[in-house]
Design a protein around this nucleic acid. Structure first.
Length: 559
RNA sequence: GGCCCCUUCGUCUAGUCUGGUCUAGGACACCAGGUUUUCAUCCUGGUAACACGGGUUCAAAUCCCGUAGGGGUCACCA
């Protein structure tokens, strides 16, 4: 007779500290923990918990907690216990699940941690030191070994283990440290698999010691059995540094310094410049804060953004919200980060949450750090956009415009009947949402705001080379277009170009390129008929006229 | 610096546990050609890696030892 063991439930959690936005690396940790719990959802008791580790009173904020809830939901990750899934709810007062509360500050208030501190103190496992409480390590406890699902067996000698603080002194509000709170909470919440970043690998000996000590001292040792530890490797920048929030600050700082030619007094020059541009907007900015940011004494995210806006610079995407801002799709972000350090074991690279839920196994997580490759992310994003039904793309881009692009939101093309035509013209050449907007800015520009620069080689070739052959064709076209009807102008103009090209025996590109240049200032636009339709006859003729004038002037000057 | 960990194309990785079928596969990027009125898409082809040095073995990307490089940690931050 063999005993049939029931499959054990899998309880995982994501436990960020609400000290800022959700980092893309944190999102991957959350994704792995979510996927592993969901893979075992058929086993009763399996669940995924979201908990806030806010034992650092100074840096934690409710606004950050809200932002993390919002970003998790944007990605499509849900949880069974923790703050309410309602983004507008208060993550501290409105929570779901019965093992709560789900923030450590609240749990500390309820005395949850103190009772175990007392237990350890009484048993001589811990002692007071300058107002704080430390757990005895070293010879008292001996060597510590544990098994990690990714990194395998790890052993540390007693001599290398130092006593560590488990409760802060008065200065820290007598709150438990992260090391203590994480162990108590994971045990009390029944967490079976602790999935987290590898920066905690070295800390795990501390946690193992705590589990073991508590198992000895309580009457329910099973509740204090060590969980399965799963440490995930880090996500790095192409340069080799760890991908971190500070990267945005560094990028803003060095761009500012560069724009001032690295002059010795660049900091004060920058402060003057930015303060001025702010005061004209009526916002005002603290020049002392700004200065300390520029001197690298702090890395405040919003100051980095202020500088980026001032410079017209796009900061590197680091937080989930940055990727949303830059026009990446949530399902693509999830797909891409899942592939950073994990793979299904075959050549399948494109998958969704359902696939991940079915396939996610711990032993397929790699040990080596991986570099974040925005090119590949962008490529995935473009593939996904191309594969979407046209109507979905139209809505998606419209939502993006409403949220982030007032310039397009107020433009006629967005509000009139042409939005669908624009979207279908750009969908297959879109990698990120802002890309078609920026590439086709001439569509929402005033007719006389188009700049003509005849120096780039492709423009010279199409217009001014061979004694202005292109310019002559454009003049011919202006006359031909003049007689065309306004309705369906683009289509008619396209026909006319075909006709002229055929009768004169030339390549239609010879006609098309000068028109492109005239209406957009560049040689690249969506198909010409659509582009001209979007612009309309009046605008096209006006732009051709301006372009012709500019071209003739340019050729005279260079004759 | 002490301790812990990692190392396959430029990048993400398959293959390593259970040595041979790996003249190392896929993806992104890159290059070339084709399709295309531009750009892009799409199609075809190509360049490109087992960090290094020893050992074990008939046989090593795969096992062992060492070296180098990289990461983490050593906070009353998490």
């Amino acid at each position: 007779m063999s005993a049939v063991t029931d499959p054990q439930p899998v309880v995982t959690r994501f436990a960020p500290s609400p000290t800022g936005a959700l980092h893309i690396g944190g999102a991957r940790t959350a994704l792995f923990a979510w996927a592993y719990a969901r893979k075992h959802r058929d086993i009763p008791g399996s669940k995924f918990i979201l908990r806030f580790e806010d034992t650092d009173q100074k840096r934690s904020s409710k606004a950050s907690a809200r932002g993390i809830v919002r970003d998790m939901k944007w990605l499509g990750l849900d949880w069974d216990e923790g703050p309410s899934l309602d983004e507008d709810a208060d993550p501290y007062t409105d929570q779901i699940g019965d093992a709560g509360p789900y923030t450590q500050s609240q749990r500390a208030e309820q005395g949850i941690y103190d009772q175990y501190i007392d237990l350890l103190l009484e048993a001589g496992e811990a002692y007071e030191d300058a107002g704080a409480v430390r757990l005895k390590m070293g010879e008292h406890r001996g060597d510590i070994a544990f098994d990690d699902a990714v990194f395998g067996h790890i052993e540390v000698k007693a001599a290398d283990l130092e006593d560590f603080v488990i409760r802060k002194s008065e200065d820290g509000g007598r709150l438990p440290t992260f090391h203590f709170a994480v162990v108590i909470d994971d045990a009390l919440m029944g967490v079976t698999h602790v999935i987290r970043g590898q920066e905690h690998l070295s800390n795990t000996t501390k946690h193992a010691a705590l589990y073991d000590a508590l198992a000895k001292l309580t009457d329910d040792p099973m509740a204090w059995a060590r969980p399965v530890w799963v440490h995930t490797p880090s996500i790095m920048n192409p340069g080799g540094s760890k991908m971190s929030k500070r990267d945005k600050a560094k990028a803003a700082r060095s761009a500012m310094k560069n724009s001032l030619n690295e002059a010795s007094d660049w900091v004060s020059a920058a402060v003057d410049q930015i303060s001025e541009s702010f005061s004209t907007r009526g916002d005002g900015i603290d020049s002392f804060e700004l200065g300390s940011f520029l001197e690298a004494k702090q890395d405040t995210a919003w100051i980095a953004q202020v500088i980026a806006d001032h410079l017209g610079l796009r900061l590197p995407e680091i937080d989930v919200d940055d990727f949303k801002n830059s026009g990446y799709l949530p399902e693509v972000c999830l797909n891409y980060i899942a592939l950073l350090g994990w793979n299904p074991g075959d050549d399948i690279e494109r998958f969704d949450l359902a696939f991940l839920t079915e396939k996610f196994l711990l032993d397929r997580i790699g040990k080596a750090n991986s570099t974040f490759d925005r090119d590949k992310l962008r490529s995935f994003n473009g593939d996904t956009i191309r594969a979407m039904p046209a109507d979905d793309f139209t809505c998606l881009l419209a939502d993006y415009v409403k949220a982030y692009r007032p310039d397009w939101h107020n433009a006629g093309i967005f509000n009139g009947g042409d939005w669908g035509a624009f979207c279908s013209a750009v969908q297959e050449r879109t990698e990120t949402l802002p890309m078609p907007l920026d590439a086709n800015a001439y569509l929402i520009a005033e007719d006389d705001a188009i700049d003509y620069d005849f120096s780039p080689k492709p423009i010279r070739k199409a217009m001014t080379n061979s004694n202005g052959a292109g310019v002559k064709l454009l003049e011919e076209l202006r006359a031909a277009f003049d007689g065309l009807p306004e309705a369906n102008f683009g289509h008619a103009a396209h026909e006319k170009i075909n006709e002229l090209a055929e009768t004169s025996g030339t390549n239609m590109g010879k006609y098309a390129q000068p028109v492109r240049i005239a209406v957009s200032g560049s040689t690249v636009t969506p198909p010409l008929d659509v582009t001209l339709d979007l612009l309309g006859k009046l605008a096209v003729l006006k732009r051709i006229g301006r372009c012709l004038a500019a071209a003739n002037k340019h050729m005279e000057a260079n004759a």
